Computed example of a mutant assay.
Amino acid sequence: MTTEKTGTHGAVLQDKAPEKDAPIVELRAAGKSYGNIRALHGVDLKVFPSQVTCVLGDNGAGKSTLIKIISGLHQHTEGEFLVDGEAVRFSTPREALDKGIATVYQDLAVVPLMPVWRNFFLGSEMTKGPWPLRRLDIEKMKKTADQELRNMGIVLDDLEQPIGTLSGGQRQCVAIARAVYFGARVLILDEPTAALGVKQSGVVLKYIAAARDRGLGVIFITHNPHHAYMVGDHFSVLRLGTMELNASRDEVSLEELTNHMAGGTELAALKHELSQVRGVDVEELPEEEDLTAPVASSEGKS
């Protein structure tokens, strides 16, 4: 079964209508090796519509490799990668985009001196007039960009201002709105709050929730468990290329998520070392058995 939707220039895009309980994107025991280096191994991940799947991990955990596989930049070398239940092996990011998988990287790939509306349509400009006299339809692009930003709750006074003059949070929000407009069904966000302050991080988290409410499946890559827990529906923690935790929100608390993210064994070892340093109070640090214990069923948790 397929549904029809109109693309930017009036083209009809054919997409499968995802079943309510079926994942759009699924990884089964997926992995990636670079020669003798095994960057990712045995990763299971499901991305459902109208859900935020948070992927957490420290530097070197495998988050970037996971992004590259799903976005079509690299191919997996083991396991399966499915989109709408069908096995795929993307050769380019364009193939992933054609399936509705869009990635917003930390650097955003914007041109700072260009206006907001110009960046919104960068690489996919609207045109008008007969060939060979076709020209940019500037007024339509401005109107469309303004409307789409407002649909996401983003109101800018002047779309002519260079996008470089916006705050980091505002630029992230423009990138999210752009991906939604161009037909994204799965939105991958690569550390969108990493370089932002508290207030701007809150703005970005607000629009992540807005994207989820519009029916997108969101993959939120982060190393901040507090940000993840604010908007996340499902949590996956990567550690040294493997999945250490894979749990839904009602199965894990913020404290448990933080402990898994931090690495229980390492924290226990650190506590032991710090206990030998004068003037350092380690009494409040958790014990090793608390950090490494499996996540218990959390019936009744909020």
Rank of each mutant, 00 (worst) to 15 (best):
H272L: 11
T3N: 03
L166F: 02
V104C: 02
K63Y: 10
A247N: 04
N36Y: 09
T77G: 13
T3V: 13
E26D: 13
G35A: 01
Y229E: 03
T8L: 15
G10V: 12
V174F: 00
I69N: 07
F120G: 05
V155F: 06
F121H: 10
V237F: 07
K143F: 07
A177G: 03
H234A: 10
G241H: 09
Q75D: 11
G85W: 10
P18E: 01
Q75A: 11
I101L: 12
G129Y: 00
P130C: 09
Q14Y: 12
G169H: 01
R178Q: 08
Q51L: 12
E287Q: 12
D98K: 14
T242A: 15
G79L: 05
R214M: 10
K5L: 14
L108G: 01
L149F: 00
L73H: 15
T222V: 01
S201R: 02
N224V: 07
L240D: 08
R135T: 10
V110G: 08
G264R: 01
Q170A: 12
S167T: 05
I70R: 07
A29T: 09
T127L: 08
A109W: 02
P93K: 05
R239Y: 04
Q170P: 06
L274S: 00
D158Y: 04
N59P: 13
Y34Q: 12
V186W: 10
A145E: 03
L205V: 00
M1F: 06
E78W: 03
R278A: 08
F182M: 12
P112I: 11
G123S: 03
T144M: 07
D146Y: 07
G42C: 15
G215C: 03
V83E: 02
A177M: 03
I37Q: 05
K20F: 13
G202R: 08
E95L: 04
L73S: 12
V111W: 02
K16C: 04
H41L: 13
E255F: 11
V218E: 07
D213H: 07
N246S: 11
L245S: 07
V111I: 14
L149R: 00
E4T: 14
R278G: 10
D98G: 14
E26Q: 15
R118E: 14
I69D: 04
A175G: 05
Q161L: 15
R94C: 04
T6I: 14
T77S: 10
P23R: 10
S167F: 04
I154P: 01
I219Y: 01
T193C: 03
T242P: 08
G169Y: 01
H41D: 15
M1R: 14
K142N: 01
Q200N: 07
S71A: 11
D190I: 14
P286A: 01
T258D: 06
R171T: 00
S50N: 07
T292F: 12
G232D: 09
V203L: 15
L40Y: 02
H260G: 09
N224T: 00
E4G: 00
K128A: 13
S91M: 06
A262M: 15
L285E: 12
E288C: 03
E148F: 09
S64K: 02
N119T: 04
A209N: 13
A293K: 05
V83S: 10
A247L: 08
K301P: 06
L113V: 15
E80G: 03
S298E: 04
E19C: 10
A61Y: 10
K32G: 00
E19W: 13
K16A: 09
M230F: 05
L274G: 01
R28F: 02
K206N: 11
A29D: 14
E191M: 09
G300N: 09
